[in-house]
Amino acid sequence: MGLEDLSHNFLTGNIENLVKWARRNSVWPATFGLACCAIEMMSAGAGDYDLARFGMEVFRASPRQADLMIVAGRVSQKMAPVLRQVYDQMMEPKWVISMGVCASSGGMFNNYAIVQGVDQIVPVDVYAPGCPPGPETLINAILTLHAKIQNGEITRRKGTGAGISIGEVKRKSNVGTLAKKNTPKTVKIVSK
């Protein structure tokens, strides 16, 4: 088919990349504030840091409507089953950011009450370091997750708890460019 016959603008791409692009730009976090980090998460959403720039400002109260769980704070033994339940209630595709050292590894609270790393309960995609991580760190973690969504596999998540660290993604991915992969289907978007 001769493209020169068409009089309107259009873009081509493959469906996988399109889906990933759409997913990346509308990740809705669940309000899962636990401790100190929750305050910084709220700060990130407020005026000064403005998560809305990344299409992330829609914090959903219901896990059914959310794609991303930001585990913001230490997870206690009592909270752990609840956390897992909330995670299970979220719809696929879903991602988890472990915010702060307490969520990532138990942090300074290496004791009977705190789960030593939320990755024992749910699979974590990105770990954000800090105690608490500043809003900038959280935004960096979110952008890292965006890059992971954009460049990762579209298939269903494997049942492992292993996540990736921020440094790793930065090295492996080219943030902002479409991954060059084999193109099973081609679609056209014709603007009117």
Binding site: G106, N110, N111, Y112, A113, Q116
Partner: peptide
């Protein structure tokens, strides 16, 4: 009862 002294802190 964790605050008892004969209960270890549970450090891993």
């Amino acid at each position: 009862h964790p605050l008892r002294k004969d209960y270890s802190v549970g450090r891993i």
